[in-house]
Write a protein that binds this DNA or RNA. Structure first.
Lengths: 242, 242
DNA sequence: ACCTGAACACCGTTCAAGT
DNA sequence: ACCTGAACACCGTTCAAGT
């Protein structure tokens, strides 16, 4: 029950550090200031300690990033585990869909997480657990082991609730400054034509003129429907080379 | 026709720097030493100059990364432009497929490029040009503007020839060291069961036991086939909110 | 066992100064 | 116009030393 009694500026009792506290602080920093703000020094400051003290509780910065990725994955697993249980037959699709949307919901709170996921190499036990449950749903729904395996690859990051968008975020049409916007239709005729027909002033639209949630659903359903079709009429699910 | 005449260690004529030379050097460094090796100091060393000199030709490091991303995108556009021209009707699918595989071929030479793409925000003219051509193929094939738009989102990074894999690269099943491999089947029963049925000792297999090229094709065809079906029998291609 | 301070090698970037 | 040198603020990480 030790309390810092130094009559200085630090009023907080200074809980002892721990791996969990370090990771939690890192998640908070990423949430409020973005992933680049997660530095060992900033982390230490947030915890009222010195940067070098962190190395007693974590291996290095890479360990911190792996750690916060896992924190989010476990949040995702927990949220996904709370949606309705498995269903048999065609119900596998809605069960998987629900889990994926639950995952997506978690990522809204941690928009930096996809970038950190993609910067990691290898796979943690937390991710394996998440995929294990998803495979279970698919197998219960009647997908073969082969098809479930292909399914995970086809879904890719969508299984975890996100997909990298082709446009942005960022300036919609021009990173190159010296570009004449009036010339847009001349330089990109098909793109301009498409946008002209597609644009709808939706409030949920982002900088790329698109409703990300709707596009995520479209792509996800395209894949899930395709998998369901293969479930019903399996063909050579192992593509021949050549 | 100036040549450095200093009788020092530097024998090379020292071409003057230029944005193009800087970007080319950056691509080379990334190719041989990975993207993290692309630092302003290393870049300068490679060019026989000082780090601070680079700032006369590029804005900052972000500009360098945007630049090398565009170099690769332009390589991709050129390779994709050399495959067979457009086809009408159902031929759109094979035309798009060929372009995407051409893109993928380029990325084999620059395996760091996907990571850099994903770290960029906004979209360059080079990317817009690439997508413009792809939209043209789709519209010629009979896809509506709306469907072509959804298609780009659904393809996501696959349009540029890559997809982020769920597993690795890296240690296949365990980033967490303290894990008993004998317990694998106990902790991840569905995963273990799936792998048991799926594993085939293919030489083209990577660390995740999977043939990345075959999985890429599977996922790509799933999406393209789904889109082609929507082309033939369009339904409400604009998903209703709620 | 847990934390600190000093120190090291390495970043990106600026700016006045050189040619 | 083009390049350099010194300098600054900031990294991740080590290690001997403190309690």
């Amino acid at each position: 029950m030790q309390v810092a009694m130094s009559g200085g500026t630090d009023l907080r009792p200074r809980l002892p550090l721990s791996r969990e506290r370090v990771l939690q602080a890192a998640v908070t920093i990423a949430d409020v200031a973005g992933p680049d703000a997660v530095t060992m020094r900033r982390l230490a400051e947030e915890l009222g300690a010195e940067a070098t003290s962190l190395y007693y509780h974590v291996d290095n910065k890479d360990d911190v990033l792996n750690g916060i990725a896992d924190v989010v994955v476990m949040e995702i697993s927990q949220a996904a585990g709370q949606v309705g249980g498995a269903a048999t037959g065609a119900g596998w699709k809605v069960a998987v869909r629900r889990r994926i949307f639950a995952a997506r919901q978690v990522l809204l709170r941690h928009p930096w997480a996809p970038g950190v996921f993609e910067s990691r190499s290898g796979v943690s036990a937390a991710v394996l657990r998440y995929y294990d449950a998803m495979i279970g749903l698919m197998r219960d729904g009647g997908l073969s082991a082969d098809l479930a395996h292909h399914a995970l690859h086809a879904l890719g990051s969508r299984a975890l609730g996100f997909s990298r968008e082709v446009f942005g975020p960022g300036d919609p049409a021009a990173r190159d400054a010296g570009q004449d916007p009036a010339d847009f239709a001349g330089q990109f005729p098909h793109l301009a034509g498409m946008l002209h027909e597609v644009v709808h002033d939706d409030p949920d639209t982002n900088l790329c003129w698109c409703d990300n949630q709707a596009e995520f659903e479209f792509g996800l359903d395209l894949i899930l429907d395709g998998l369901d079709r293969l479930r019903e009429q399996p063909r050579s699910s192992d593509p021949q080379p050549g």
